[in-house]
């Protein structure tokens, strides 16, 4: 699992040296943001079902034609919302907040997903709609402190950018 700390130590070890001052600055930066990340991680973990559900609902709000006859949301049961995948990405974002880096998203959510979605011709706009909604939905100070919201939103942006 890559994080700022493991990246710095691995690079230093590969070169048989001590971490440089810029290495230490990046670790220090990560530590300074840790409290904000933990705040966001804790809130996200506690509200994951609500956050994820709102995000799926946003897919349909953004694409109401999905309700048309013959479309993927045309029966009473709302099945087109990809609940499972969105929740998976929100969980990986939570891990990233804990780690202090994008390792969990990179390693478990993005590298293979892009290829799989492309190979199977799976639609990515619903993910973009759902994650964009989550990014725009967060509010400070109602939901999170400004610093925590910044950490959370930057990871949502990272996921949107990487999956699209």
């Amino acid at each position: 699992m890559k994080s700022v700390v493991t990246t710095v130590v691995t690079a230093a070890d590969a070169a048989g040296r001590f971490p440089s001052s810029s290495d230490l600055q990046s670790v220090q930066g990560s530590i300074q943001r840790a409290a904000a990340r933990m705040e966001a991680a804790e809130k996200l973990a506690g509200n994951i079902d609500a956050v994820a559900k709102e995000a799926y609902d946003a897919c349909i709000a953004a694409n109401p034609y999905l309700n048309d006859a013959g479309q993927a949301n045309s029966t009473d049961t709302f099945k087109a919302k990809c609940h499972r995948d969105i929740k998976h990405y929100m969980r990986l974002i939570q891990y990233c907040l804990v780690v202090g880096g994008t390792g969990p998203l990179d390693e478990w959510g993005i590298a293979g997903s892009r290829e799989v979605y492309r190979a199977l011709n799976l639609p990515t706009p619903p993910y973009v709609a759902a994650l964009s909604f989550a990014r725009n939905r967060g509010c400070t100070p109602r939901d999170l402190s400004p610093q925590a919201l910044t950490e959370y939103n930057s990871l949502l942006d990272y996921a949107i950018n990487s999956l699209s």
Binding site: N63, Y65, L66, D68, Q71, A72, N121, L122, P123, P125
Partner: peptide, 12 residues
């Protein structure tokens, strides 16, 4: 090619 989702967005 899998085109299950070809009309998903209902856009002309």
């Amino acid at each position: 090619m899998d085109n299950r989702f070809a009309n998903m967005f209902g856009l002309s």
